Amino acid sequence: MDPAPFTPVRGSCLCGAVRFELTGKPMSLSYCHCSRCRKQAGLSAAVLMVRRGDFRLLSGAEHIRRYTPAAPFKHVRAFCGTCGSPLGEPSEDHEVFPIAASALDDDPGVRPVLHQNTAALPAWHMLPDDGVKRMEGTYGG
């Protein structure tokens, strides 16, 4: 029996200027707690890893801005230039890239598999006992 077809997952920024869809199941969903993700996304960044062929920008390319950090950091951060919503890093240059789960309008059908960079958690943030694997690193990509 063939698996059920994947229903596209829609996403957008807060103001609706940037809209996209995922046409294939994301590879994973994880949380990053490094200081750089926290500064860009809030408490932590929930990130979906997607294949380039499964991502389709529907509108708003002209609104997407990118922040490229100085070395040694390497992760470019994409966001809507109008409302500031994080988008992850949709890219034509990479076969796999992160998309901000906070930008999703629909359920992606995957659940979190990892809390990464937990050693960078501020003292005031307590993680739930959710059974999700944890990795201590403190990377600030």
Rank of each mutant, 00 (worst) to 15 (best):
L87R: 02
Y67W: 15
L104E: 07
V50P: 00
H63M: 06
D106I: 08
F79T: 01
S85F: 10
A61P: 06
V47Q: 15
V47A: 12
T82Y: 02
A71T: 13
D105F: 07
F79K: 04
K74E: 05
E92R: 11
F79L: 04
A70R: 11
A103V: 08
F97P: 03
E89R: 13
P98S: 03
F97E: 01
G88N: 05
F73V: 07
G84Y: 07
R65D: 03
D105M: 13
A41I: 11
H75L: 13
R65Q: 08
Q40V: 15
K39L: 14
R56P: 04
V76G: 03
S59T: 06
P69I: 03
L43P: 06
L87C: 09
R51C: 02
I64S: 00
H75W: 14
A78S: 15
Y67F: 15
L43D: 11
E92I: 14
I99Q: 05
E62K: 00
I99D: 02
L48Q: 03
H63Q: 06
I99P: 03
C83W: 11
A101G: 07
E62S: 02
T68N: 11
A41M: 12
E62Q: 05
F79R: 00
G60C: 02
A61E: 08
A41E: 09
F79D: 04
V47G: 09
L43S: 14
G84D: 04
D105P: 10
P69E: 05
Q40C: 12
G53K: 14
A100V: 09
I99N: 00
L57V: 04
F73H: 14
F73N: 10
D106A: 03
H75G: 09
V76C: 06
R66K: 11
G81N: 00
D106P: 11
C83V: 08
E89N: 14
E92D: 14
H75D: 08
D54A: 13
H63D: 05
D54N: 12
S85V: 11
G42N: 13
P98E: 00
C80K: 02
H63K: 01
D105I: 12
G84N: 09
G60Y: 06
A45H: 09
F55R: 09
G53L: 12
H94M: 15
A103K: 07
C83E: 10
K39E: 08
S85R: 05
K39C: 06
